[in-house]
Amino acid sequence: MYPKIGDLLFISVDSGDEKEAVVQYKSRIGDMDEDSILIEVPMQEGTGRLKRLFIGDELSIFFMSEGGIKNYFNSYVFGFKEDMIRMVRIRRPEPDSISKIQRRSFLRVHAELEVAVKTDKMLRFVARTDDVGGGGLSFYCDANHRVSEGDGVSCWVLVPYKNGSIEHVPFNGEIVRIKVLENGRKIVMVKFTAIADMERQKLIRYCFERQFDFRR
């Protein structure tokens, strides 16, 4: 499903600047053609600051559709149009590259990331994730790590982006399931119980970068 003229787009700019990379902008669609979407100059939510874009800037974008569904896609700037107002020309995505995610439901992707874990029983260790998403993650741990379903955990996960920047994402969670493997190791599945919206967005951005790479 494509967005329509007049729809709002919510945009993050893939930037080498870590602070800028987590800023969200919004813009309205002014026109469309077969190859491109023309949008207003993006404005930062909350401050009204306009974002100057350049040809080649890579963008992570979502728009809302009925039922509270977020529709995500990646694009880039490849031109401008001077009309009554300045418009930014971005590449129109292929239909199958738009990912639909219902509110409160998050994409998960396979990823081997470093995660530091502290349980509410004061056990501490470093592990590698099996998958991550905006609602939780799972990680491998050794057989001698005494973890149980229902345990609370306080963690941070190291998240690298394709532009070379790295984020440490902290969260609190609850172990909801443990799967014991044939070699005795465990896969521990955790749902987030407390995570800041900004930190969750960092994980969602990483997931969509990974999904975009898989599709390519």
Results as ranks from 00 to 15, higher is better:
1 M>T: 15
5 I>L: 09
16 G>F: 05
16 G>H: 05
33 D>Y: 03
35 D>M: 11
35 D>N: 14
35 D>A: 12
36 S>A: 14
37 I>M: 09
37 I>P: 00
39 I>L: 02
40 E>P: 00
40 E>M: 07
40 E>K: 08
42 P>N: 02
42 P>L: 02
43 M>T: 07
51 K>R: 12
51 K>Q: 08
51 K>P: 01
51 K>D: 08
55 I>Y: 03
59 L>T: 01
60 S>F: 10
64 M>V: 15
66 E>F: 07
68 G>T: 02
69 I>P: 01
69 I>M: 10
73 F>P: 01
74 N>E: 14
81 K>A: 14
82 E>R: 10
84 M>I: 12
87 M>T: 07
88 V>W: 02
88 V>C: 07
89 R>F: 12
93 P>Y: 07
95 P>Q: 08
97 S>V: 05
97 S>A: 06
103 R>A: 09
107 L>F: 10
108 R>F: 05
110 H>V: 09
115 V>W: 03
119 T>N: 12
123 L>M: 13
124 R>E: 15
128 R>Q: 15
131 D>I: 08
132 V>C: 04
132 V>E: 01
133 G>V: 00
134 G>K: 04
136 G>E: 00
139 F>Y: 02
139 F>C: 02
139 F>N: 00
140 Y>G: 02
142 D>E: 13
144 N>D: 10
145 H>I: 13
146 R>P: 01
146 R>I: 08
147 V>K: 00
147 V>R: 01
148 S>N: 09
148 S>A: 11
161 Y>G: 13
162 K>N: 14
166 I>T: 15
169 V>I: 09
169 V>R: 00
172 N>W: 11
176 V>P: 04
176 V>F: 07
178 I>W: 04
179 K>F: 12
179 K>C: 10
183 N>M: 12
184 G>T: 13
186 K>F: 10
187 I>V: 15
188 V>C: 09
189 M>L: 12
195 I>D: 01
196 A>F: 10
199 E>C: 05
201 Q>F: 12
202 K>G: 01
203 L>G: 02
203 L>Q: 03
206 Y>F: 12
207 C>Q: 03
208 F>H: 14
208 F>G: 02
214 F>T: 09
215 R>C: 08
